[in-house]
């Protein structure tokens, strides 16, 4: 791992955040299995270091973040209420969208988290539009525009890169390359598997970066976020990570597209374990303390789930709310 440039307090923070995300995501899977969450649900297990490194480099409450449907970790890191997130994932009244969004459509606009989108590549121009908005108003916000390796092939993504570069939009496109577009391996879906090159034709600065070593991620993210804030221009990064879980909770046969051996090998890159080794080796944190932290978040996650589960389902009469800001749609079947 990278030499330590972080304070012990920051190191503990990153550790806590990654453990917290994993505990939360495990509860999401449990909720799905228990029938308390439905639809499509995609967890971030294995990819925690990426969001932790990048989002800790932002001015929370000022900068903007947008991502696709693997969207639970990002708002948690921006200070969203985990109970309200879990309630939304369970489709409850007290969720951020009062049960209208679900796992794929989490939003906390006040914190600068703009979702939460289900069409692969479809949100990438929206993210550029957030950056357009802040630039138009003369603000120095930075937008993080997360997408997956599958979305890196979408036509609208190329259109967006062109305009982001053409108009100098302060947007960082972060391709989270977890090696699979759902069940299709990178080399079966991308003619050139070095996705960072997507920035090249548009004259956009671009890099392929590590996404498993949280300290490396944090260092790269800080450098690039600062550059984009200062220069008000776009940047593209390909962040190499791996999805330990299936594509979604409904993906229960991962052997269709990858071997057990491959998964076991990838598990050695586990971002949480890597940080644990580092913390131990450098005497930042004891095994006992780490164990206590892990237990703390297990209890915390149980509590979050219990509180979310206590929220009522929305009343059927709410179905017409928020179709429009100022009127109701035609009613009735």
């Amino acid at each position: 791992m990278k030499p330590n440039q972080e304070s012990p307090a920051d190191l503990e923070l990153y550790y806590r955040q990654m453990v917290q995300i994993r505990a939360f995501e495990n509860r999401c899977n449990a909720a799905y299995r228990a029938g308390k969450a439905g639809g499509y649900l995609h967890v971030y297990i294995g990819m925690e270091a990426t969001a932790v490194g990048w989002i800790n480099s932002l001015k929370i409450g000022w900068d903007y973040v947008i991502t696709a449907y693997r969207d639970h970790a990002h708002p948690m890191l921006m200070g969203s209420d985990p109970v309200k997130l879990m309630a939304e994932i369970m489709g409850r009244k007290d969720g951020y969208s009062h049960g209208k969004g679900g796992s794929m459509h989490l939003y906390d606009i006040e914190k600068g988290f703009f979702g939460g989108w289900g069409i692969v590549g479809g949100h990438t121009p929206l993210g550029a539009g957030l950056a357009f908005g802040s630039k138009y108003k003369g603000e120095d916000r930075v937008t993080l525009n997360f997408l997956g390796d599958g979305a890196a092939n979408a036509g609208v993504f190329f259109e967006t890169l062109n305009m982001a570069a053409l108009w100098d939009l302060p947007c960082i496109f972060i391709i989270e390359n977890n090696e699979f577009a759902m069940g299709t391996r990178l080399e079966y879906h991308a003619a050139d598997t070095e996705l960072a090159k997507r920035g090249y034709p548009f004259g956009m600065k671009h890099e392929r970066l590590d996404g498993m070593d949280v300290l490396q991620v944090r260092q790269d993210a800080k450098r690039i976020v600062d550059w984009v804030r200062k220069n008000q221009k776009p940047y593209l990064v390909e962040v190499m990570n791996y999805r330990f879980a299936g594509h979604g909770a409904a993906d229960n046969d991962r052997q269709l597209y990858r071997t057990k051996e491959e998964e076991d090998k990838a598990l050695h890159r586990d971002p949480i374990e890597r940080l644990e080794h580092y913390l131990l080796k450098n005497n930042v944190m004891s095994e006992e303390k780490m164990e206590a932290i892990r237990e703390e978040y297990e209890t915390w996650a149980d509590d979050v789930m219990e509180k979310a589960d206590a929220s009522p389902h929305p009343d059927p009469s709410e179905v017409y709310d928020h179709v429009y800001t100022d009127m109701e749609p035609e009613k009735g079947h």
Partner: peptide, 26 residues
């Protein structure tokens, strides 16, 4: 040019950018 913006011929892309901009209050 700041307020009258000629776009490339890419309706999905510039419409999406306009939607994102609208979400910021423009």
């Amino acid at each position: 040019p700041k307020r009258i913006i000629d776009t490339p011929i890419v309706e999905p892309g510039f419409t999406g950018i306009a939607i994102g901009a609208a979400m910021t209050g423009l």
